[in-house]
Nucleic acid binder design. Structure first.
Lengths: 206, 206
DNA sequence: CCATATTGTGTCTATTTGTACAAATTATCC
DNA sequence: GGATAATTTGTACAAATAGACACAATATGG
């Protein structure tokens, strides 16, 4: 294992490899090559070999990679060989969809609690969760030492809520609000904004 | 205007700048600087100046950038100075949320039709849309010359549906299914997968 | 008219990707 | 069963891309 700092761009590709490998594994495939994996995820074989080799020699010349082993290593590297508790803040349509999504469990995440500030929603059931009041959010997050939040509140309050989350100890925010969040260093943010993603593609259309 | 090919990494930042500028504009601000914009979006001022200057000299030394003008230029560059028709395929929770989301209209996109293959859903109303049968999807897309689709179907059928979309003339797909889509060159794909985004952050947590 | 602000860009440095190949493994052939 | 061909990794090296830095040139404001 190389002790040097790994560039974030490589870290960003690992979950994509992992997802493809898990899919292969589910189909019963035992072994793959950088070539095959590259074709699946649309990345050059050399790139994949180089990315993986940052963390050790996981492959075998002539044979390729054991899928089960590589999955195990990637999960360990990405720290998803454990289960992370996650909260969702904002029970609008997107919050609803995320709360009911069953794709988190086998990828290292457990939705633990969901919050909203609307008195009409607090107490409602969404999926298997009872909506909790944002007033008790900081307290609950601290109590349960939760480090990850998905933020699905309106843009107007997103920055403010993000600050509450950070203050309560959250270190990673998946932000669905269409604004750039400002957070202290040490806190990671990923942005999901469909319009932004679409605008990134229209440049290439006629 | 520079005629050279612009790197995709720069194109990817422009929608983020645009979003921040529109937010400033909504607040009534007239002028900004690379410095200020950089603080908002978390990118260095030099980077922003260089990105913008790829397309022309839009700023003024000593003063900064006229927000209205810069918005206009960025919209033009990203080709969102027009309105793009978009279809949504898959009326599960995420499809529902997108169909009812009102954040597309003022960012260059008009949801035109929504599809599902479930006979129980076809004919239902979702937001202001009547759910159409996937059987007529290719035909409708061709008829209306639609170039952009949001794909919110289960992973098991996502590749297959993507191929139908491409065959019908779609050139840009926003993919919510947790798989890497394989599409011909000339077709753009952006992936939105919350678990993948979360896994990109857990690496940095303790 | 001087102090301050701010752009656009040339230069340098760092990062990222591509290419090629030795080394190791497996498959095939006779 | 031994020789040969085909795979495939990990990495050294080269090329390409991206980002940081610095500053001349220009604008504004008292």
């Amino acid at each position: 294992m190389n002790a040097e700092r790994i560039p974030d761009i490589i870290i960003g590709r690992l979950p994509v490899y992992l997802r493809a490998l898990q899919r292969l594994s589910d189909k019963g495939v035992q072994t793959t090559s950088s070539q095959e994996l590259g074709e699946i995820v649309g990345i050059s074989a050399a790139q994949i070999r180089k990315d993986i080799s940052q963390f050790g020699e996981f492959g075998k010349q002539g044979t390729g990679y054991s899928i089960a082993f590589l999955i195990e290593r990637l999960k360990n590297i990405l720290k998803v060989d454990r289960v992370w508790d996650v909260v969702i803040v904002g029970m609008g349509d997107i919050g609803h969809a995320l709360a009911r999504y069953n794709g988190f469990a086998n990828r290292g995440f457990n939705i633990r609690m969901v919050f909203d500030n609307d008195p009409h929603k607090v107490g409602d059931k969404v999926g298997s969760f009872e909506v909790l009041d944002t007033k008790v959010m900081a307290e609950k997050i601290k109590q349960n030492k939760i480090k990850i939040a998905m933020l699905t509140v309106p843009a107007t309050v997103a920055q403010e809520v993000a600050e509450q989350l950070v203050k309560a100890g959250v270190k990673a925010i998946l932000n669905y609000a269409p604004i750039s969040l400002n957070v202290p260093s040490g806190v990671r943010v990923q942005h999901i904004d469909p319009a932004t993603h679409l605008q990134r593609m229209t440049y290439y259309l006629d």
